[in-house]
């Protein structure tokens, strides 16, 4: 307290962002949660007369109501399938590409750019193209996009209805464009990780008689685990909030491809039900927090241990 000039300038520097974040993030989160607990009625016109109708009872029942609805469970299941396939797919593709590049291919720079390019395309633009590629029409003449390619190659058996399929696993197809788009990014993360490990460590392992697999398994991969964890969190939380790609591919208000984020759009704009949308938003926030908060806590702790 005697020497305010030590902390005062620092505080003044960060104060604007504290205030802005306070209002635009935390206050709005609080407001959203408050909205989600509201009792809601709606004035409707029935048979040419106005009528006041209750649509939400308020309190925790708003949550049980939404979580209990079949449409929402369908959306949550879709999200789970999408997230698992998307995360596993990008991690595998990203790791594979980075190992290939790390082995010292000729023209590495060219390949690196090619793999990274999809990330420069916006989800909406990519979605428009993928919507066509993943068209469900099948058979000679009717098929377009990937199915047409399969027909032309004589691989008719590979044709699929993609995300329009009548299957609990249809959202796995929706993960394809997302994997295509983000694998390059994961590759770049891993590649940076590999480059950060000195050549001397590999040499040492090889001199000790380690096979190439053992070098990766026991020397390189363990040192990549923080990067893998970050990559996992980044891709995972992107998947949970995914809206634009699905909107572009399946159109607004698609039931088949609905996930909580697209359902929120439907609730707010088509059903004009801000309370249900707020409940949904809070649930999405909780789902993301369940993944991200332990990660933040973990990084904080490891950094403190190191520091």
């Amino acid at each position: 307290m005697q020497r305010p000039k030590n902390w005062l300038p620092g505080l003044l520097m960060v104060l604007p962002s504290i205030i802005l974040v306070g209002i635009f993030v935390y206050y709005l989160i609080a407001q959203n949660i408050w909205t989600s607990l509201n009792v809601a009625t709606r004035r409707v016109v029935v048979g040419g007369k106005f009528e006041e109708r209750s649509i939400h009872e308020g309190g925790y029942r708003n949550y049980t109501e939404l979580l209990g609805s079949a449409d929402y469970q369908h959306a949550l299941w879709n999200l789970l399938v999408l997230t698992v396939v998307f995360v596993v797919g990008t991690m595998i593709m990203g790791l594979l590409w980075s190992i290939l590049l790390e082995k010292g291919v000729r023209g590495e720079g060219v390949f690196r750019s090619i793999y990274l390019f999809p990330m420069a395309v916006s989800f909406i633009a990519a979605g428009v193209v993928w919507r066509w590629l993943l068209s469900p029409a099948k058979g000679e003449g009717a098929a377009i996009g990937l199915n047409q390619l399969f027909v032309k190659l004589g691989l008719d058996g590979l044709q699929s209805s993609w995300w329009s399929a009548d299957s609990r696993w249809n959202m796995a197809a929706m993960a394809l464009p997302a994997i295509w788009q983000l694998s390059g990014y994961i590759m770049a993360l891993f590649l940076a990780g590999f480059r950060g490990i000195g050549e001397d460590q590999r040499e040492a392992a090889r001199i000790d008689g380690a096979s190439e697999w053992q070098v990766y398994r026991h020397v390189l991969f363990p040192q990549l685990s923080p990067i893998a964890l970050s990559a996992l969190i980044i891709v995972g939380h992107m998947s949970m909030k995914m809206f634009d790609l699905i909107y572009a591919i399946a159109g607004p208000n698609s039931y088949t491809a609905s996930v909580p984020a697209t359902l929120m759009w439907t609730q707010l704009f088509a059903q004009r039900d801000p309370v249900a949308a707020a409940v949904n938003a809070t649930i999405i926030l909780v789902i993301v927090a369940v993944v991200v908060v332990p990660y933040l806590w973990y990084t904080n702790r490891t950094e403190r241990e190191r520091g």
Binding site: A137, A142, G251, T256
Partner: peptide, 8 residues
């Protein structure tokens, strides 16, 4: 009918 997808 043909096979269609939601957003066609």
């Amino acid at each position: 009918a043909n096979t269609a997808s939601d957003g066609d």
